[in-house]
Design a protein around this nucleic acid. Structure first.
Lengths: 206, 206
DNA sequence: CCGAGTATCCCCCAATTTGGGTGGTTTTTT
DNA sequence: AAAAAACCACCCAAATTGGGGGATACTCGG
């Protein structure tokens, strides 16, 4: 059985190098290589790839938007982003768009092959820095100015709950919740829910 | 220069096997190996490790809570979780607690060495399945019942904003925002903000 | 043992928000 | 041309929010 691979990359040399490299593997088959998303999207359902290698910086439609559309057309296809961009916005946009892996272009040829094998094994290949970025996005500030209770309450307000609902869930009075909010607002130097949640997210308090 | 490593693992055989294995590397030094978190925490500041290998299933305090405390004491120390648990709750709890990497115990010996090297290079080593779990946590439902506008508005309410604030940010009337909410509530079959946000998170709509 | 910090609860009040109903128009997409 | 999406308006009652007071009790470290 051959894994069907589609490449979307506007640099002709890279495109051809990838094609040659991947076709060396008897279990890989590069079914198409496109230099833009628009053409790829027209034919991708016909191509029926298991895996797509996607550049981000493409003429007209970029690889992030392309990823969204392809995932909509072929939800089971795994898309690996291959790009020079290492900034967190691009990374998280790509993952939110549905990318399974994210490699930076400086990686050597073996890394590309490894990444595809990794995807086939059910993994999500990422460059070192990308993996760290992703993991760090889960981590909270170790030096929060808020108490445990205040953090708990702030966390619940961020779920859209009202004072009353929070009070019920914590088995305390609504007045107590209000009181905690007064303190939260003072500590975070804000005057309403929205700003408190914004600041809490910025400072990774919740 | 030697990287100082602390091991926290209650199984004596594994603990000793790790110690021997890591000490084979001239640039690694296992400074201590503990069988529980409590003792580790007492001495960890003295040990001043660059890297901690942490089990999850420990007597008394578990490895997740141990990770939180150690990260509080030594924010720069990188903690690699090594466990049999692959369920998503444990994984995300560990990452939120401040773990830098997450390996499953079936991995072979080379994988452990690789993981430490990966951490030193600034990466976040993860087993295949774990990486996929983590990446999937960013991905949205490709088949949302909501329109773009409705999704945008729901997303803003989840940031704690009021109808008025949302209206201003989108340059539309407050009445229009209300109208969209009516449709959102019908589509999601809920009757208030909190339930809408809950359902949106469950179904990965935002 | 004292004081700071935390957590709990209560009252007052005014402005805002919310969710439900009704009814539309205009623009975009198919 | 029909359907879907986005837009706007008015009514209303209940709930929520944020600000101000003030009170009691527990815990932890110096």
């Amino acid at each position: 059985m051959k894994y069907r691979i589609v490449i979307i990359e506007d640099n002709q040399q890279i495109r051809e190098a990838f094609t040659v490299l991947l076709n060396l593997r008897t279990d890989f088959e590069v079914v198409q290589a496109y230099d833009n998303c628009e053409n790829a999207i027209k034919n991708i359902v016909q191509d029926a790839p298991h895996i797509v290698l996607m550049d981000v910086d493409l003429p007209n439609m970029n690889g992030i938007d392309g990823t969204k559309i392809i995932k909509k057309l072929l939800p089971l296809t795994n898309i690996i982003i291959i790009t020079v961009f290492e900034n967190s916005k691009t990374v998280f946009d790509a993952l939110c768009a549905g990318a399974t892996g994210y490699l930076t272009k400086n990686s050597d040829k073996d890394r590309l092959i490894d990444a595809i094998d990794e995807v086939i094994r059910g993994g999500s290949p990422m460059s070192s820095k990308i993996a760290r970025l992703v993991v760090q996005s889960f981590q909270k500030n170790t030096n929060s100015p808020l108490t445990i209770r205040e953090t708990e309450i702030l966390s619940q307000i961020s779920e859209g709950k009202s004072y009353t609902t929070i009070a019920d869930s914590l088995f305390i009075s609504k007045e107590t919740v209000k009181h905690h909010f007064k303190n939260i607002y003072i500590k975070l130097q804000v005057h309403n829910k929205a700003d408190a949640i914004k600041k809490a997210n910025q400072d990774r308090l919740i």
